[in-house]
């Protein structure tokens, strides 16, 4: 079963309000409504004709121009030997999505990582807190407009350019002589 057929199956089951588009490129993906991620994934996982048993990854992509964050789900079915790519977007100012933890346990950590690095909140998540960065970190680094702070606790985050330091030192010593 090819991704196009998966799309047809989804359209038959959920209709065009939930399954928004099928983008045909060399690596096609299916765009879905952001409110029904859980239902669609549950269907794909347990339907005997698809059996997408593995959640391969969840990634988040920041698009400041259209003020949205895209969340991309890669599902893998060894039964069909097919990769299914689901895409959904959520507004950048208040990003919120359903958690997939009840469908795949592994989604727990993937979603925590996206919450940590992009600041997307997942409703129904059992333990939504930072996973990679310290708990008191400010900001979400994978957003395109993230700016690094000058210091973290009492540690400087910048190192002076060694060539510049050397040049200044040489100039100083040259003057004193």
């Amino acid at each position: 079963m090819k991704p196009a057929e998966v799309y047809k199956l989804l359209i038959d089951r959920f209709g065009e309000d939930l399954i928004l588009a099928y983008v045909e490129t060399r690596n096609p993906y299916i765009k879905i409504n952001n409110g029904y991620v859980q239902a669609i994934c549950t269907f794909l996982r347990y339907n005997p004709s698809t059996k997408f048993a593995f959640l391969s990854s969840i990634s988040g992509v920041d698009y400041p121009q259209r003020n949205e964050i895209d969340i991309v789900y890669h599902l893998f079915s060894p039964f069909l030997n097919t990769l299914c790519v689901l895409k959904t977007s959520t507004p950048r100012d208040l990003p919120e999505l359903e958690s997939l933890e009840s469908v795949w346990k592994v989604a727990n950590w993937f979603e925590r990582e996206i919450y940590d690095l992009l600041g997307v909140r997942f409703t129904g998540h059992s333990n939504l807190k930072r996973i990679l960065l310290p708990d008191d970190w400010e900001g979400h680094p994978l957003r395109k407009d993230y700016k690094e702070k000058n210091s973290y606790h009492d540690m400087e985050t910048m190192r002076p350019d060694p060539l510049k330091v050397l040049r200044e030192k040489n100039e100083k010593s040259g003057k004193s002589q």
Partner: peptide
């Protein structure tokens, strides 16, 4: 508790 070697390779 992970993240002690998070080097931000994706960024």
């Amino acid at each position: 508790n992970i993240g002690y070697l998070h080097r931000g390779i994706e960024k």
